[in-house]
């Protein structure tokens, strides 16, 4: 579904954000990009979303150039900061996506909000919603046209721990229902472990893939205290320590 081969990204300032990345993501797979700040996770995601172009290498989404995939409405994105129009209600914000892409099989915005447990808040403006609710609306905006691929960049990064945990469980439910291919950027090990089929661990300077690990099915559950989850989280966290440059952790 997603193919990234020999992709490098060098910014005008000289920063090499990505260096010779190879990655494939299968249809229906949930892949997390994990790593410390500045290792190029967001940059890679922006390449997949067609928001930026690689300096070299090839990025393909569903066999197409990302921009072409966008044109077909195959991509939905959600970032850390909800991209909502403040003067539109939750429902109108979800509708906004459909005002731009009309695809057969799209969700009904009201129905989607109902499924997301936001039925009572459809006519609320973003500033009237909590951070967690805003992010759910934001993800509804990304999903409503039923794109094949969902790209998420730290969607829960700004939320408190409890909300983040419950939304992680909620997202797993949503994705298992829609069956989409997902690439999630996160720096939360728990989030990555409990949601993903595979975790791509990245390291900075220059941004490279350090290792890729499969997550055992037993760890993809809602309870972050379950032994399988804890074991996997511990394992990954140790690996993560290895990629953080000495002294940079402080």
């Amino acid at each position: 579904m997603i193919t990234v081969s020999q992709v490098s990204k060098r910014f005008p300032g000289g920063t090499v954000a990505l260096d010779q990345i190879d990655l494939t993501v299968a249809r229906g797979e949930f892949v997390s990009l994990l790593g410390p700040s500045g290792c190029g996770k967001s940059t890679l995601l922006r390449l997949l979303a067609g928001l930026d172009t690689a300096t070299s290498g090839i990025v393909q989404v569903g066999g197409l150039a990302p921009v072409e995939a966008c044109r077909r409405g195959a991509i939905g994105v959600a970032f850390q900061r909800p991209a909502l129009v403040p003067s539109r209600t939750a429902l109108e914000n979800v509708r906004l996506t459909l005002e731009i892409v009309r695809r057969p099989g799209s969700f009904t915005p009201a129905e989607l909000l109902r499924q997301f447990g936001l039925e009572a808040f459809g006519h609320h403006y973003p500033h009237q919603l909590s951070g967690g609710m805003q992010q759910r609306v934001n993800i509804a905006c990304a999903l409503v046209h039923r794109p094949e691929i969902l790209l998420l960049d730290e969607p829960f990064g700004a939320l408190d721990e409890i909300t983040r945990e419950s939304l992680t469980g909620w997202l797993r439910g949503v994705i298992s229902a829609t069956g989409q291919t997902v690439v999630l950027v996160t720096h939360s090990v728990e989030e990555a472990v409990t949601l993903s089929h595979r975790i791509v661990l990245m390291r900075p300077d220059p941004g490279r893939i350090h290792s890729v690990s499969e997550v055992p099915a037993a760890a993809r559950i809602g309870d972050w205290t379950a032994p399988a989850v804890v074991a996997e989280v511990t394992h990954l966290r140790r690996r993560l320590h290895g990629v953080v440059p000495a002294g940079a952790a402080a």
Binding site: G50, C70, I75, G76, V77, A78, A83, I100, V101, A142
Partner: peptide, 26 residues
């Protein structure tokens, strides 16, 4: 206009005019 919103609209392949109407003008 919110750059994050504009990015999201760009991934929907919104035209420049649509970006103006839906994000910049509000």
């Amino acid at each position: 206009a919110d750059p994050v919103l504009i990015d999201r609209l760009r991934t929907l392949h919104a035209t420049r005019w649509q970006i103006f109407r839906k994000a910049a003008w509000p």
